Simulated assay, not measured.
Amino acid sequence: MNFKEQAEFERAKAVLDDLDVHLIYSCLAGSKAYGRSSTDSDTDIRGIFLPAAADVLLQKDIGTIRLKDGDVEFHPIAKFFKLAANGNPNVLEWLFVREDHLFKMDCYGQKIRENRSLFLSQKLFSSFFGYANGSWKTLSKLFETPMKPGSEAWNKARKHAMHIERLLAQLVQILETGSFCAWNPDYTEPFVTPENSEIQKPILNPDYTCSLSSLQKRIEQAKTAAILPEKPDYKALDQLRLEIMQDWLRTSLNLGPKN
């Protein structure tokens, strides 16, 4: 974690403190968490928070907190559990970033990370594939219009192409090993390098399409012998969240330890 990234986190943390919510987990996300960032990449910061005790008791609906400046997003614990259990790749991966990519992890955040396998199930097959398919549709749409190599549209198309390969590679990891790592710096260049800088449609690299085909075959093979349960252990996840909230409320309200 460099000084600039830490400074971005401290700025975000100050906003949460003003809102009287308790941040329990925060990490790098996006290209920097994947190991694919460039010099102009944003610092994506994500996290999980516990609402103030008063808001919990008054049943106030505390939604996602997003900062206007920068790519910063924090989910309340209930929303995080729901999205992660449904296999949302953009949320689930927060628990699978490298430890040196963590900004903060208190005892509650550590408990969630230690139990991250509870969120993994064969439901991830459809969710990861669905997100990859969404990027493919966006890529196909972008391909309809010629673009200049290196332009914003070109780079956006390349980014979506790289997302597809990364998502499929992570899904292979999950199905074959029962876990995965957000750090995924290896990729196949998706487009053939153009011979000139004229406006044109990107040409997919044959090595890239071969990589996608290979990954899809491995996914189909791994799915039939998947070691993951059909669905998350919702009962265990509910119990985990209940224990965290009970302890948080006891601590916040000075009720003392559980008998």
Rank of each mutant, 00 (worst) to 15 (best):
E5W: 11
K235A: 13
K231A: 15
K148N: 07
L171M: 09
G35M: 01
P232A: 04
S140R: 10
S37H: 15
D61E: 13
M105S: 09
A182F: 00
R166G: 09
K123E: 15
I199Q: 12
Q221N: 11
R218L: 12
K32N: 02
K32L: 07
P229R: 01
E114T: 06
R250I: 07
K123L: 14
I203K: 14
T193A: 13
L28Y: 00
I48D: 05
L120V: 04
S38M: 10
D44A: 04
S41E: 08
F81S: 03
P190Q: 06
F81W: 01
D55E: 13
R158E: 15
T43L: 07
M105D: 01
A54T: 12
R98I: 00
L124T: 09
Y25C: 01
F3W: 10
N196R: 05
D44I: 01
E93A: 03
T251G: 04
P229Q: 09
M245K: 10
I45K: 03
W154F: 13
I227F: 10
I62N: 09
P206F: 09
S135N: 15
I199K: 14
C181Q: 14
A29K: 01
I65A: 07
G70W: 10
E195W: 01
L171T: 03
C181Y: 08
V56H: 08
E99P: 00
S197N: 14
N88T: 11
L58D: 14
N259F: 11
R66D: 04
